[in-house]
Design a protein around this nucleic acid. Sequence first.
DNA 1: CGTTGCATTGAATCTCGTCAATTCGGGTGG
DNA 2: CCACCCGAATTGACGAGATTCAATGCAACG
Lengths: 247, 247
Amino acid sequence: MQVRSNMIPFPLNGTRQAQGACADCGVKSRAVCAGLAPEETGILTTIMSTVTLAPNQLLFEQGDLRSRAYTLTSGMLRLSVSLPDGRRQIAGFVTPGDYLGLSGEDVHTQAAEAVTACRLCSFPVPEMNRLMEQHPRLRDRLHELTRKALLEARGNLLMLGRLTPNEKLARFLLGLSDRAVENGQPATPLALPMTRTDIADYLGLTIETVSRSFSALKTRGLIQLADAHRVEICDRPGLTALAGLPV
Amino acid sequence: MQVRSNMIPFPLNGTRQAQGACADCGVKSRAVCAGLAPEETGILTTIMSTVTLAPNQLLFEQGDLRSRAYTLTSGMLRLSVSLPDGRRQIAGFVTPGDYLGLSGEDVHTQAAEAVTACRLCSFPVPEMNRLMEQHPRLRDRLHELTRKALLEARGNLLMLGRLTPNEKLARFLLGLSDRAVENGQPATPLALPMTRTDIADYLGLTIETVSRSFSALKTRGLIQLADAHRVEICDRPGLTALAGLPV
DNA sequence: CGTTGCATTGAATCTCGTCAATTCGGGTGG
DNA sequence: CCACCCGAATTGACGAGATTCAATGCAACG
């Protein structure tokens, strides 16, 4: 059983404000927006507002009514499912451009919390649904993102069920690195904004095992740790092989 | 490391034949077809053919080109991902009404094999895509099924990462039971057509641990085994509590 | 009636989780 | 500026629990 970091309920530090500037948005090529024709780029603006979150702040909780959908524009979130006794599984880390609300349920089945300070675009669900009907490209884009999310979730099943701790960590680091590249950051050194507890809950391990796995990868010369939250990937092919991934 | 059952490559026992009878189909209320208006029910027939599979027969393999989509009408399939060294994770068991091809990739990322004798409707992917464009309801229905699949996959993450073997087995049995009910069968006794190896690869365990968990649930009076493939659920609330699921 | 494949059970092993101590780094206040 | 404190991460020792290895049981089939 592990102690969770103090959760800050949503409206405490959150701010919402109308904002019309999609033009200079850094994630528009990867986000939902990417599906829209040039003349449509503005349609989301009409129903959109902006949210900011402080680290560890809760965006929504398991069981909350889902009234809004979101696109993360900066920062990182974690999506998690918890059992009554406190065991927690992190279903994924949300990086800029990702959309929250793909599974489309009425009530949230997972919680979303900020890992780092976050900035999001927020859309009311009913309006979003209306826009989807009116704009086929938006609808198709969301469908496409849902399919990708399904592929990713299924890939994680193999990881959780059949990989060893070292293999899990290798895969985790490579996945984060790929996402960093997608977001225009270098593949290495890699920032690990989340805590060891988060990583453990993502990989289905304990923080101690995660820490030992970091040490194991270091010993094998695959990575180096500047500090606990900054990894240098020294041997990417080696890491890839360990992770059991295709070259 | 575990030995796999002998795989039979696809065209060996498979048969394909044109068939026009959706009218008396037993799964049309749960399958893709459920999204179609009465006058549209026939549209799929025009591009459809029928496939039958013998137990353990391979429908497609990881890496195969995805040329067809399917709806299972009877029997059971397993979807699995394997590592080069033979470790395998079963992503899910496919029951009647389920659709194969939701994630929409060009190349299959998982294998599909028959657990029992199966009967499927088969659709060429290009024609299916064309139909989706022409029939919004079909498209929406597939989107809806994709969302459900995403929810299920995410639920399985918690199971694989954080549940104990007994809890995993309890959840597995309850899930199967629920699906049996959806397909018009009694909630108990429950048929387990798959092998212990399949169950182990689904739950991220070994066959021995699966077997011991069955024994543990028996000892606690939660279930009874007529034989290895037929379970009587004696204490559903008890099982539900053990699985950590809401009542 | 022997063979074969699968499931169960037992015993030994080992990995990972638990508990506990130590280190490290960042922030605060004197 | 430094001492102190606190939370997080690392490391070590130990033990529980799952895997591995091995033996037995059981049912289907030729």
